[in-house]
Design a protein around this nucleic acid. Structure first.
Lengths: 206, 206
DNA sequence: CCTATCTTGTGAATTCATTCACAAGCGGGG
DNA sequence: CCCCGCTTGTGAATGAATTCACAAGATAGG
C-alpha cells in the first residue's frame, strides 16, 4: 500500500464531515467540485485524495453521498468505536471530557487519570478519576487504544512513556512539548500557543 | 519578501521554545544539529528555515542562544503583546481563559463574550462576560487583534463574521467547521475530532 | 440511437518542500 | 601564525504534493 500523507488524511476527515452535512441536508449525490468548494480545496485535489483508495464515483454524476460517506468512514477506521483514556483532569482535561462530540464520533473515554491526590476518587461523568499508579493496570484491563495527554509540559513525557508501556499506540498530546514516542506509536499534537504564534507572525508581516 | 510556508512558521515557533529551554538550562550557544535533535527535525532544515530571514550563526560555533531567541521572537512578532478576545465561555472557553501560559507569551485576553444570557455579567478573572451584541463596540474600543472562537459549530461562522467586521484580522477557531474569512484575515483551526480521526486511521492501517 | 453535457479518474507537468553536499568562516591549540 | 576540526549558509538535487488537462464513462433529452 502506498504512503498516505498526513494532509491527505486530514482532508479525508474533512470530507467525511462535509458528507455528513450534505447527508443531513438530504443530498443524494455530490460532485468533487461541490466537496472542494465546501472544504476549501480544489476538485482535482478531492479526486486525487479519493483515488488513493479506489474509485467511488460515477462519471457525469458525482458520488453517492451515502456510499462515499461509508467508504471514507471505513478508510478512516470509524466504523468501530475506540477506547480512549484521558490523562490529566485539569481545566482542559475536564473540558475535553465533557465534549460530547467525541462519544458521538466513536471515541469513548473509558478511563481518567490525574496525579493530584485531591482529585483521585472524584467522580467524573460515570467514571472515577484514578491515580497515575493505576494507569498501567487499568489501560491494559480496559484495552485502551488511544491516550489523550492533557497534563503540564513537565509531566507529559513521563505520561506518554507510561501509556506506551501499557500498550497504547496512539497519543493525542495537548502539552506544549515535543514528545518522543517509539516507532509504531502514532503521535499528534495540539499546540494552541504555537497556533497563536502563527497568527502573531501573520499579523506582523505586512 | 519571499513566501514563508506555514510549516516553516510552525518550526520557528518550536525553535523559539527550544531556545527558551536551552536558555533556562544555561546554554550560551547551540548548533543547528542540537536544535534539530530536540525539535525532531534535521540540521539542514533548521539552517534553511533560519536562512529565510538572515544569517544568525557563527560558522564553527553555532548560534548564540540569546541572540537567536531574540531574532526569532522578533520575526514571529512576539516582542510585543497582543490583545485577544475570547468568544464562547463554555467549558473549553473557560479552560482556555485560565491557561496562564497565553498571558506569559504575550497574548492577553481582554474581552470575553457569550451568547448565553445567564452567563452575561458573570465575572471571569478580572473581566466580565459580555453579550454578543456588545462585540462590535468592545472589540473596536479595546483594539482587539486576535479572536479565539470557542462556540458550537453552528454559531461559529456568524461569530467570525462579526469579529471580522469589528476589525479583527486573526482568528483561532476551535469549532469543527470550515470557516470562511475574507482575504486579509488569517484563520487557524484547532480541530480535535479531526486529530482523533487521524489517530484512528493510523491504528486501522496495519 | 445519437448527441450534448457532465464529471470522474489519472498520467504528466508543475510547484513547493526537504535533503544533500560542500565551500567558506571561525576559533582553539600548538 | 598556521593548521585542524567544527558548523554555517546555500546552490543543486531530490522528493513530495498539488494542479493541469484530457480521454473515457455516464446520463438525459430528443
Amino acid at each position: 500500500m502506498k504512503k498516505i500523507s498526513e494532509s491527505a488524511v486530514r482532508r479525508l476527515s474533512l470530507y467525511q464531515r462535509l458528507l455528513q452535512e450534505a447527508d443531513a441536508a438530504g443530498s443524494e449525490t455530490i460532485s468533487s467540485g461541490e466537496l472542494a468548494e465546501r472544504g476549501g480545496t480544489t476538485s482535482a485535489q478531492v479526486r486525487k485524495d479519493l483515488s488513493l483508495f479506489g474509485s467511488f464515483g460515477k462519471r457525469g454524476m458525482g458520488y453517492s453521498v451515502q456510499e462515499l460517506l461509508g467508504r471514507i468512514r471505513s478508510i478512516l477506521g470509524l466504523t468501530r468505536s475506540w477506547r480512549v483514556a484521558l490523562v490529566g483532569a485539569g481545566k482542559l482535561g475536564s473540558a475535553l471530557f465533557s465534549y460530547r462530540d467525541f462519544e458521538a464520533r466513536g471515541f469513548r473515554i473509558c478511563a481518567v487519570f490525574d496525579a493530584d491526590p485531591d482529585k483521585v476518587g472524584t467522580p467524573l461523568g460515570d467514571l472515577t478519576i484514578q491515580a497515575d499508579e493505576e494507569m498501567d493496570a487499568t489501560l491494559r484491563e480496559r484495552e485502551v487504544e488511544i491516550a489523550i495527554v492533557a497534563v503540564p509540559a513537565e509531566a507529559a513525557q513521563q505520561v506518554v512513556d507510561r501509556v506506551v508501556k501499557a500498550g497504547v499506540r496512539a497519543v493525542l498530546n495537548f502539552a506544549p512539548v515535543r514528545l518522543r514516542v517509539p516507532r509504531g506509536v502514532t503521535l499528534r499534537n495540539v499546540d494552541v500557543t504555537l497556533e497563536l504564534e502563527g497568527l502573531s507572525f501573520a499579523l506582523s508581516t505586512r
